[in-house]
Design a protein around this nucleic acid. Structure first.
Lengths: 200, 200
DNA sequence: CGGTACAGACCGAGCGGTCGGTCGGCACAG
DNA sequence: CTGTGCCGACCGACCGCTCGGTCTGTACCG
């Protein structure tokens, strides 16, 4: 379906994951006790462990599924953009922005709790994250090669754009002054400027 | 002294603070035990408490002094820049960049452990951080008013620039491919592009 | 000069409490 | 009567922090 990458499903998370998400985003992984998660899930501690084998598995469940979702959506956004570097850039950046607004808490956890992941989880997560970054890197390189982007430092510009999109998750509020469409408009304009595209 | 805001002193931290910094940046605040800090400081647990009254005081000591240092340096950078918006912008951005390279671990802790600060510490830290942000906001507004910056969204652009400078602390390595001067050159170019300054 | 008084730096042992995780069992659906 | 979903009770380990005390110096008194 056209533009389907723009919307993110609103089917709720499994209760224990939702509880973990809420707790982790308030206190962080190590600052959250398993008892607090159980309480938020309206379960006893063993009841929680019936569904997930460990605290780490809750983190993994939150982080890996949401990163896979981002990759799926941005892959679709890229596919739908066609060959134009400008359109590819715009689509992927918009996808990044919408993702970090719709999935802000999961995205925030994923990017701030890397230190709390056990090596195998961390490695798997980093691999997905790098894949996402390389997607944008290649688009910016393509744009520079074709002369539609003017930056002298394509890779740094690409990372800077990703950074500002990721940071949206730290300040965006669904009930804030700016709605998602406004944020997309503004940040797309800023992102284009950063890579030296013509149009503001 | 001219340009003194460009360099950051290399006098080492007090041993307990250095130990806490090292531990916090590896495992995070809640992931670090007071015993681990004591071990890194070559002290017993009571020996550590002889110097600092609590774990929270160690975090406060790390975060507040380094933020004050940033404000001092960027104030000096601003003063030395004179009235030109372009020069003011360049100086403050360069100061932000050099700070986040020289003090990368402290800056990283400060920006990632906000959740771990007790309310009074957090409020004080946020106040300093906002002061720094407003400094750049006003410069960008001035530049737009004078017509030397072209962005349609001055405040968002200002926040985006701050964000990319802060993020330098997460990936910069003193022994990496890029030296501090190169990073300053590249990111200054990107930051100018983001606010729509003429020169790349 | 020797002796006393004191202070800062530090530690072994251990406090009450919480941590992540587990065990055995109960209620109920198929 | 078996499997699923769940829980009260509990485990060993570890948490942040404190107690009572020991050192090493240093300053001042006589």
């Amino acid at each position: 379906m056209s533009g389907s990458w723009r919307s993110f499903g609103d089917e709720p998370l499994p209760v224990p994951l939702a509880a973990a998400l809420s707790a982790f985003s308030e206190q962080g992984y190590h600052g959250t006790s398993i008892r607090r998660i159980a309480e938020k899930a309206h379960l006893s501690v063993p009841g929680l462990y019936h569904h997930y084998p460990s605290k780490q598995a809750l983190l993994e469940g939150l982080v890996m599924t949401v990163m896979q979702e981002l990759l799926d959506h941005s892959g679709q956004a890229l596919e739908e953009a066609g060959p134009s570097a400008q359109r590819r850039f715009d689509h992927v950046v918009e996808c990044l922005l919408r993702f970090h607004m719709h999935r802000r808490r999961q995205a925030f956890i994923a990017s701030t709790e890397i230190r709390s992941m056990k090596p195998e989880v961390r490695d798997a997560y980093i691999a997905l994250r790098d894949q996402q970054q390389r997607m944008l890197d290649r688009i910016v390189e393509q744009g520079v090669a074709e002369g539609v982007f003017a930056t002298a430092y394509p890779q740094d510009a690409s990372r800077a754009v990703t950074t500002m999109c990721v940071a949206v998750a730290t300040w965006f509020r669904p009930d804030g002054d700016l709605g998602p469409d406004q944020v997309v408009q503004r940040y797309l304009s800023l992102a284009r400027a950063t890579v030296g595209a013509e149009s503001g």
